[in-house]
């Protein structure tokens, strides 16, 4: 498999930080006893390959969402590098470029789906407009082309075409998540980032969204990073998984290995308590 993304020592400390933040956290908690800063991600490194679906599993507060937002270039990291193997960016550390270019690169490389649709959708813009917006931002100006693409995505995601002009707030939870997915993939980014995107949905709706998305991910051959505390979702959607605790990766491996034969005490508790 071809390497697509390489993440090195990605670290995020919320607060003013001090020399000892990293060394004094991780065991008992993620708050530095000296300066009071929160170490949300500490030295996270991993590789993502083309077509690979990587899970991030961990409990609430373990730093999963922070990691995803760092990857999406939304959040300024304290430390770390992010290299993508994709022209014309090969060899470039995405975290070293200016905030302005970063925004454009983010749109081109990543599609993201948030747990809370409020973060992923603009509620004052029509459903169709939400999806179109991203294309326009990427420089597409041909109205006909945009319409066509948005319509195709509405169909593929089983969204009602006749409600394209309504505001997303009138959509059900499952529809809002499907709309977020449409928006995330409208410009065919190589990497999809998913943050607990089914957590708020009731279980029957959840299954539908997961299966539809999986089908689409197959079709696109897209790579994905799937953040979840839900072992079922991780099992269903990922090939490999990183387990996070207190901002650290405590274990990583093939998904079935992590779920059936976890080595780390934390992972064992997590997996065994949920089975």
């Amino acid at each position: 498999m071809e390497l697509l993304l390489k993440v090195e020592s990605l670290t995020k400390v919320f607060g003013r930080g001090c020399e000892q933040c990293l060394s004094l956290t991780g065991k008992d908690g993620n708050r530095c006893p000296i300066c009071g800063s929160i170490v949300a991600c500490a030295d996270v490194s991993f590789e993502l390959h083309r077509g690979e679906w990587l899970g991030i599993l961990g409990e609430s507060g373990s730093g999963k969402s922070t990691l995803l937002r760092l990857l999406n270039l939304e959040l300024e990291p304290t430390k770390g590098r992010m290299l993508v193997n994709l022209e014309p960016y090969t060899g470039l550390d995405l975290l070293s470029i200016s905030p302005y270019s970063r925004r454009l690169i983010r749109q081109e490389l990543f599609g993201i789906v948030y747990q809370n649709p409020i973060h992923g959708l603009r509620m004052e813009v029509s459903a169709g407009g939400n999806v179109a917006e991203r294309l326009i931002l990427m420089g597409e100006r041909r109205v006909e082309k945009i319409r066509e693409r948005v319509l195709a995505l509405f169909r593929r995601l089983e969204l009602p075409e006749d409600r394209m002009d309504e505001l997303p707030s009138s959509f059900s939870g499952g529809m809002q998540q499907r709309l977020q997915i449409a928006k995330a993939i409208v410009n065919n980014p190589p990497i999809l980032l998913l943050d607990e995107f089914t957590t708020g949905l009731d279980p029957s709706v959840q299954a539908g969204v997961l299966e539809l998305l999986k089908e689409i991910m197959f079709e696109l051959g897209i790579s994905a990073i799937v953040v979840s505390h839900d072992i079922g979702v991780i099992n269903f959607m990922t090939h490999r998984v990183l387990v996070m605790n207190r901002g650290r990766v405590v274990e990583h491996g093939l998904t079935d290995q992590i779920l059936e034969d976890p080595q780390d005490p934390y992972t064992q508790t997590l997996v065994h308590s949920k089975l």
């Binding site: 093939l254 290995q257 059936e260 034969d261």
Partner: peptide, 9 residues
């Protein structure tokens, strides 16, 4: 079998 397949370490 599971060791060979990598499900068990």
């Amino acid at each position: 079998l599971k060791c060979l397949y990598g499900t068990y370490k």
